[in-house]
Amino acid sequence: MARGSNINKELSDVLNELWRLDVNRMKPGVDYKINLQGKAGFVAPGSNHARDGARAPLFSYVNEDKLKSIDTYAYFLNLLDNYEMATGVTEQVTKEEIQENHLFLDAILKTEVMKCAQKYLVRKGRAQSDPDQFKRQLYDVWFKLYHRDRSGGEDSCGFEHVFVGETKHGTEIMGLHNWVQFYHQEKNNHVDYKGYKARDNKDTPDGDDHVLNLQFSCNGLVKPVGSCFIGVSPEFEVALFTIVFFLSDERMTNVKVKVDEYLLEIVVYRFGRSIGTSYPKMISSNNRDL
C-alpha cells in the first residue's frame, strides 16, 4: 500500500460502502451531542500540563438506552472493563472475558459491515472465506495477548490499546481512540477533554463531524494529540482497521482515503501478527477547504 500523498481510490470505495452499510451509526444532534468549545494548545514533549480549552465535557448527551439496545454496542460495552490499563502488568483473562470476546465478534460478524469487509479481503486473498476461520483471524488480530512492555508478561492486545486505552510507566496515556470509551471515561471523571486540535481556522470542526482530532488527559496523564471517530459503530471501526491491517505487511501503514465528506489518514501499526494501534486522523471535511 503506497505511502504517497494521493488518495487511495480503491480503498476509499470500499470504506464508503462500509459507511453506507453502517446502519448502527449514531446520529449527531439526535443520539449524541458534542460540545467542541476551544482549540487545544501546545503541550511540551513529556509534559502532563495542558492549557484547558474546554471547561465542559466533550459529550453533553449520549443516548445510552439506544447504545445498550444494539447488540454490537452492548457486547462492546461489556469488554471495556476487562483490562488492566498499565502496560507491564500481565493481563489475567478469565473464561467469562474470553466468552465476552467471542460474543462481541459473533455480533459484529452478523452485520452487513463485517460481511462486506470479509468479502473484500477474501477477494484480495487476505482473509479466509470460512466464517469460523475468519473469526479466528479476527480474534488473533484484536484479542491475542502480546508483550507491549518487555519488562512484564503478556500485557496488551490490539483491542485494549485502540478501544480501551493504556498507560505506559505511569507517565503516558496511549491508545484510547474510541468515542464510546471516551464518553464513559469522561462520565466517570477519568477523562478531561482539553479541546480540539486543528492546523488553522479553516480546519475548525463542528458538532456534526464524525471524526475529531483532540487533546485530553486520562487520570492526569495528558495526550497532546489524539483522534477518533465519533458516533460510528464498533463494527465499522473493526472492519476499517482490519482491512487496512490485512492489506499491508509493513510495520506501519498510513493511507489517505476519502470517506463520505471526510479526507482522512488511516494509520495502522503492526505488532507481530496483531494490531499494535490504529486510528483515523482528520485532514479535512468538504464543508471546509480541502
Results as ranks from 00 to 15, higher is better:
6 N>Y: 10
11 L>S: 05
39 K>E: 15
43 V>S: 07
44 A>I: 09
47 S>V: 10
49 H>K: 13
50 A>H: 06
51 R>K: 12
51 R>V: 14
63 N>H: 10
68 K>G: 04
70 I>T: 10
70 I>W: 03
73 Y>K: 08
74 A>Q: 08
78 N>K: 11
79 L>K: 01
80 L>I: 13
88 G>R: 05
93 V>L: 09
95 K>V: 14
103 L>I: 08
113 V>P: 06
114 M>R: 00
114 M>H: 01
115 K>P: 12
115 K>S: 08
116 C>S: 12
116 C>K: 13
117 A>H: 03
118 Q>E: 15
118 Q>T: 13
120 Y>S: 05
121 L>S: 07
122 V>Y: 06
122 V>N: 09
123 R>G: 15
123 R>E: 14
124 K>P: 07
125 G>H: 10
136 R>A: 13
140 D>R: 10
147 H>S: 08
152 G>N: 02
153 G>R: 04
158 G>L: 03
160 E>S: 03
164 V>P: 01
175 G>H: 03
179 W>G: 00
180 V>R: 00
182 F>I: 05
182 F>E: 10
190 H>M: 15
191 V>A: 11
191 V>L: 15
196 Y>P: 11
200 D>N: 15
208 D>C: 03
208 D>W: 03
209 D>S: 04
211 V>C: 02
212 L>T: 02
213 N>A: 03
213 N>C: 04
214 L>T: 06
215 Q>M: 08
217 S>E: 14
219 N>P: 04
226 G>T: 04
229 F>E: 00
229 F>W: 10
231 G>M: 02
237 E>R: 00
239 A>H: 12
239 A>F: 05
241 F>H: 13
246 F>N: 13
247 L>Y: 00
252 M>L: 13
258 K>P: 02
259 V>M: 12
260 D>L: 01
261 E>Y: 05
264 L>S: 04
265 E>N: 13
272 G>I: 10
274 S>G: 15
279 Y>K: 02
280 P>H: 04
281 K>N: 14
284 S>C: 15
285 S>M: 03
289 D>Q: 12
289 D>M: 07
